[in-house]
Design a protein around this nucleic acid. Sequence first.
DNA 1: ACATGATTGTTGTATCTACAACTATCGGCT
DNA 2: AGCCGATAGTTGTAGATACAACAATCATGT
Lengths: 179, 179
Amino acid sequence: MTERPWLDDTERLAWVRFAAVLELLPRALDAQLERDEQLTHYDYYCLAMLSEAPARTLRMTVLASMTNATLPRLSRVMNRLEDAGYVRREPCASDRRATNVVLTETGWDKVVRAAPGHVRTVRKLAIDTLTAEQVEQLSTISARMLTVLDPDQKVMASVLRPPSGPPIAPSTINSRAPS
Amino acid sequence: MTERPWLDDTERLAWVRFAAVLELLPRALDAQLERDEQLTHYDYYCLAMLSEAPARTLRMTVLASMTNATLPRLSRVMNRLEDAGYVRREPCASDRRATNVVLTETGWDKVVRAAPGHVRTVRKLAIDTLTAEQVEQLSTISARMLTVLDPDQKVMASVLRPPSGPPIAPSTINSRAPS
DNA sequence: ACATGATTGTTGTATCTACAACTATCGGCT
DNA sequence: AGCCGATAGTTGTAGATACAACAATCATGT
């Protein structure tokens, strides 16, 4: 197995640019949400996932998978969001080890209010800088990387959800406007 | 100005995938470097930049720009790297406000030792999951996003450096193997 | 020369995350 | 029934980053 050790000029340029995006984009997303809504991007993402889930409820483990985070991290984030009144923990009847997290009405309102500004930011910093063709390319490229980063395809579970009925959430990752 | 508020299905899918990469890839890069070399990815990136700089020396402000970080962050990182013996701070003669950071011999050796494993990881998680064409696309897409994320194009300064002579560094972002 | 605003870098403080250790529950097996 | 490895979630502890406040120096204009 001959393995190319270094990056050629093309690869090097691509990586330097991409590494810069990796550094700057998450910070920019956090900055907007913390400034305007006192939420981290991760907080928002959790609330958005809950807002789209059946009964606005998800198990801790499932939510952790969907958001690509560890359980300890999610646990502390939920502590904060629970203190803020955005979510509520409920013991799971069928499995007493498990905990269900439910989005409260206050939490729903929060997501509804935060979504437009966040989507504007996502558009400004990412989507709208690209042509339609480049958006497709980014989608494909990300999917390729996820085959290694996320071998179990846990992320896709949240996308390939059956097109179930309401509630339709006004999250970033929802394509349909709340009417 | 009519502004599209939400993301359509294509955009939504692209964003969910890309957001997952944004979450997972930096963590994976950190994990490898911390496990094998007791360095964060940001530590490594700083050392790599220094290893390629003339006289292996850079001013704090310049290094902060090149690494897309704030000065406070860089300051603390340099404290750590200085304690570890990888860099040395020197007052700048021409501007007494400024501080030059110099890569020590120990630091150089560290980068040389860490580079192969890191490059392997970058290849495994990113570059080698893509076709040559997709690498080009990622490069272009990242450049587009950087027009907004980094309007002053500070990052490019580190790439468009004149093809000066040695020292050639074994950093991730260098295409030529150290011979 | 001097005053003033800008630039360079460090540090106090609060927050967030990771890793590991721990508790509680589940599920299969004998 | 009882044991035991695996799973769900929380928390102790340490480390890293952001923001703001600060000290020191520069550079410009009068």
